[in-house]
């Protein structure tokens, strides 16, 4: 590989990215072998979906916080690069939220609604407070991207979207953690499974954190790719526009010089 070219980033892929393959590969195998079925669940075998569902939910929140952080930084310094970073972080967060919703819906059918014995369309959506909360979060960030696509001027779009993203980032933990745990709502979601020592067996805890780490790596990787791609595309477009302007200037100038 010609790593001695003019660009410093012509080298290989970072080590941590290579490590994701064995890490997530072992999660895929260990979650079905080493971490056994949980007999206290209604459907013991499908309890393993927590290795996919819970990391998605946790990481989506982290990515929304990241979007909020870059949005705040944009509001402070007005650097449009932070707008792109916030947009891409929100995108990754939204994908993870949708995945958490889908895995959660499957979980809900299997654990709360009698699994495959219920009609095929039943049990996925139960209006559990946490399901309501995640739906609101999805709507917030759908609206965020709707706002992005309907303002044309870049600086104004960046500022308006940043304000909305900050509101969203503040609401996410409120919706995920405060509202569902109010005594007036009854959630079927278990509480304190992750935070307490008694919550999970050692095997479950190990595989769970491995999976969280792996998904963190994959989401970070995809975020990095999105941001780098957006920056490259921006630079290419800017150069093309400049070139176009030069051509236009030339076209205006030519008759003057020739005459």
């Amino acid at each position: 590989m010609n790593s001695q070219t003019k660009k410093p980033n012509a080298g290989g892929v970072a080590l941590w990215k290579w490590l994701l393959l064995p890490l997530m590969g072992s999660v895929a195998v260990l979650s079905y072998t080493w971490a056994g079925a949980l007999p206290e669940f209604q459907s013991p075998e499908t309890a393993r979906i927590i290795f996919w569902h819970v990391p998605h939910a946790i990481l989506s929140m982290i990515w929304f916080f990241t979007a909020g952080f870059f949005s705040l930084r944009l509001l402070k310094n007005g650097d449009l690069k932070d707008d792109t970073r916030a947009e891409k972080a929100a995108e990754v967060g939204l994908v993870l939220t949708v995945l958490a919703t889908i895995t959660g819906a499957v979980f809900s059918k299997m654990q709360w609604a009698g699994g495959l014995n219920s009609p095929w369309y039943e049990g996925y959506w139960q209006w559990d407070p946490k399901q309501t909360a995640i739906l609101i979060v999805i709507l917030i960030f759908f609206a965020y991207f709707g706002l992005r696509s309907s303002v044309d001027e870049a600086h104004r779009r960046a500022r308006l979207c940043a304000v909305y993203a900050v509101i969203g980032a503040v609401l996410v933990p409120v919706l995920y953690y405060t509202l569902p745990h109010l005594p007036i709502f009854s959630s079927v979601h278990p509480t304190k499974v992750i935070s307490t020592r008694e919550g999970m067996s050692p095997e479950y805890r190990t595989v769970f954190w491995m999976s969280t780490l792996g998904f963190l790596g994959f989401s970070l990787w995809s975020y990095q790719m999105q941001v780098r791609f957006a920056f490259v595309a921006e630079r290419i477009l800017a150069r093309r526009e400049n070139a176009g302007a030069e051509v236009r200037v030339e076209a205006v100038r030519r008759p003057v010089t020739e005459s």
Binding site: V13, M24, F218, V232, I236
Partner: peptide, 22 residues
């Protein structure tokens, strides 16, 4: 998982190509 990994690897390659071709 493998599919996701190799997809990301290809994506990284393409983005790097684009950056280098600039």
């Amino acid at each position: 998982v493998g599919g996701l990994f190799f997809y990301m690897l290809r994506l990284e390659g393409r983005v790097r190509d684009l950056e280098n071709r600039e």
